[in-house]
Amino acid sequence: MASTTPMDTPPAPPLSSKPGTSTGRAGDNIFAGLSRGSGILLLVIMASIAVFLTYRASLALSKNEGNFFTTFEWDASLTPPVFGIPVLLVGTILSSIVAMVIAVPIAVGIALFISHYAPRRLAAPLAYVIDLLAAVPSIIYGLWGALVLVPYLDGLNLWLDQYFAWTYIFDQTQPGVARNMLTVGILLAIMILPIVTSVSREVFLQVPRMNEEAALALGATRWEVIRLSVLPFGRSGVISASMLGLGRALGETMAVATVLSPSFVLSFHLTDPVGGTFAQNIAAKFDEANATGRDALIASGLVLFFLTLLVNGAARLIIARRKEYSGANA
């Protein structure tokens, strides 16, 4: 709509006591300026994150004796600092993939359960419970994962290694308890489940009643209703929910730091208790890092930053292409 439509007949003596007649213009300008300013501030913050991280990272990279992209060790605090990220990159992506593979289908299932399957009276409290659990801090997931989940998954780990070693990913080549990428992935999946669920559920609840009723009227079963009207409508919502989850999984620090037994060994075996992720490595190595060591950690953080940027950006584009229902002013 056009900005301020009032017919500004009097040339506005500033601050008359009549509300809303004369102070309009100046107030409008100030307010618009303020709100635009904070929008711009946001962009400035984003830009400066990239700039400052890049600057500090370049300091460390210029001293790096190893190759940042191919060196399989992290000794950034030694006098000739040697460090590289492949282990971290693989670990981060691997654990996130495991988390997504487990979490997204289950989350969609739960969202459908709450929106379409659960008994009416139960649906609201259940949704409430899931929402509350989205708020559990990651450090508590980490504590629980390390002290409760790991012992439980030991058996599964052995079993997978015993019978599914042929799949390569479940082949355990290094000894140790289940402090591995599989456990990390499962824990991350549990952590992102509530977020993915609650966003998906919101979308599923917005499916036009008419679409569902039309499908029902044609004699569709409940599953067919969901396949024909709910899922197509909710797809972009599910993608955006998954994106939120993936973002959290990629950058999750504490849960990984507490559960994983880290080491700089590259392994694609999910059951090997080795590896590391960007965030975990930063948290673990920060205490003993010297100046160069910190810059090196910032360099790895920069990679993580661009990784999340890439994921979120790509997901945004996917959603933008399917943006039929924006909610407001429809």
Partner: peptide, 10 residues
């Protein structure tokens, strides 16, 4: 949107 996805450690 992108900022929502910034990891806390970054």
């Amino acid at each position: 949107d992108v900022m929502t996805g910034i990891p806390s450690i970054v």
